[in-house]
Amino acid sequence: MSVPHPPPRIRRATPADEDALGRLDRATWSTLHAVQPRPQPPYEPFYTERFGPRDHLVAESGEHTDGRMDGHIIGYLRIGFPTSLAANAHVRQILGFVVAEEARGTGVGRALLRAAAEEARRQGARRLTLRVLGHNTPARRLYESEGFVVEGVLPGEFLLDGKYVDDVLMGRKL
């Protein structure tokens, strides 16, 4: 019998999270979801001029039986504007989404997606969109279970590991 995992704590990222987020990002790199080459040292900073702590939700591992949070970052989601156009300001886009290998299948990704929808609504958004690689079946199933639908496909958009992979555009109303 498996031991149930305590629910993750979702919070806004802080400047102090940068190193942990960078390590998590590098540790989870895969052509299942990444279109950029594997990061190599010296590593670029995780936060950039465009995306800082305010644009990231962080999942921390859950509460221990004694009520303490262990504070280990096990996932993040980057949310932002898909364009800088005023006519598109009612839309937010998921621009990065990672769950640590050991936390996959435990509800962390679902909690982050729900927190992102809540945050997008709080910001006044009416839609939430994302892009996912066509061969990333686990992510696509999760997105569909949270109300996202396929709104477009760019066939063979990326060449990864010698194979052409579709870029799938998904979205949902908030």
Rank of each mutant, 00 (worst) to 15 (best):
A115F: 07
A86G: 00
G71S: 11
K163L: 05
T65V: 06
G152P: 03
V98R: 08
G71D: 10
G80S: 14
G124P: 04
G134F: 13
R38V: 13
G96C: 09
E144F: 04
D161R: 07
V58R: 05
D70M: 07
K173C: 09
P8F: 07
N136R: 11
L112K: 02
P41F: 07
V153S: 01
E119N: 08
V132F: 03
D19R: 15
Y47I: 13
Y164M: 06
P82A: 11
G124N: 05
E49M: 14
V132I: 02
M1P: 05
H5E: 13
R50Q: 12
R11H: 09
T48W: 10
L128E: 02
P37I: 05
G107I: 00
G147N: 10
L77Q: 06
Y47E: 09
L113C: 09
A86V: 15
P7Q: 11
R127H: 08
P41L: 12
G147Q: 08
A89H: 02
M1T: 12
G67A: 05
E144Q: 12
R50L: 12
P8W: 04
L77P: 05
L154A: 15
T65Q: 14
Y143M: 07
R12Q: 15
F51C: 01
A27G: 00
A125Y: 02
T28P: 03
V132S: 07
R172K: 08
L160V: 11
E144G: 05
D70P: 10
G124V: 09
A27K: 02
